[in-house]
């Protein structure tokens, strides 16, 4: 009995160690490669996103600009990351936003359903509204989920599954009307 308890204790501690390492692994949240982006005329992106709000899932988070360095996708514990190389939310293309699956960040992203509203608040205080079109769980090898689009698309994702092996992706499109603060 004592051996069994010791073995169980060791397994719990090792598992906790693995989960903790994975939670802070700088390569998590990465896809296999960077998404293909369309060349844009404007090198300076104006009016970048500042806040992501999804009321249905109690998500109201700061948006921090992020870049990809090799296999390392910049992340933040303060909110969610907007991939600078992707489109600004609301512009033509696919705007990519991602964050940790922590309870205080995108842990509730799995509650989002098609038809739910996504609100992006910009640096100048303006807002744009998006509707969720689809959600899916994909492999990190499935980089095509982040590919550019011909419409105004937004893709929000976090990690999911056994040892964060997959990505939970929420895809939305712009609602043409937007409100000014």
């Amino acid at each position: 009995m004592s051996k069994l308890l010791k073995a169980f204790g060791m397994i719990c501690i090792i598992l906790a160690g693995v989960l903790y390492w994975q939670r802070n692994n700088p390569k998590r949240l990465a896809f296999l490669s960077a998404p293909i982006q369309r060349e844009t005329n404007s090198k300076v992106k104006k009016n970048i996103p500042a806040r992501l709000i999804i009321k249905k899932a109690n998500i109201d988070l700061e948006v921090v600009s992020a870049r990809i360095y090799g296999q390392r996708w910049e992340t933040t514990s303060l909110g969610v990351s907007w991939l600078e190389m992707s489109a600004v939310p609301g512009d033509i293309g696919n705007s990519i936003i991602y964050g940790h699956n922590w309870t205080n960040l995108l842990g509730n992203l799995n509650k989002v359903r098609p038809g739910d509203d996504i609100v992006i608040v910009y640096k100048d205080g303006s807002r744009k509204y998006f509707t969720v079109d689809a959600t899916a769980k994909v492999s990190p090898k499935n980089v095509s989920i982040l590919h550019q689009s011909k419409d105004q698309k937004i893709t929000i994702y976090t990690c999911v599954g056994l040892f964060d092996e997959k990505r939970l992706v929420v895809v939305g499109s712009l609602i043409k009307k937007s409100a000014q603060m």
Partner: peptide, 26 residues
């Protein structure tokens, strides 16, 4: 095996240490 909830990780550590202590005491 989800990394999102830190409480689960703390819980595993606590359960692990508790189990080790009980095993040693037994």
């Amino acid at each position: 095996a989800a990394t999102g909830n830190i409480k689960i990780i703390y819980g595993l550590i606590f359960a692990g240490f508790l189990s080790l202590v009980f095993g040693y005491l037994l």
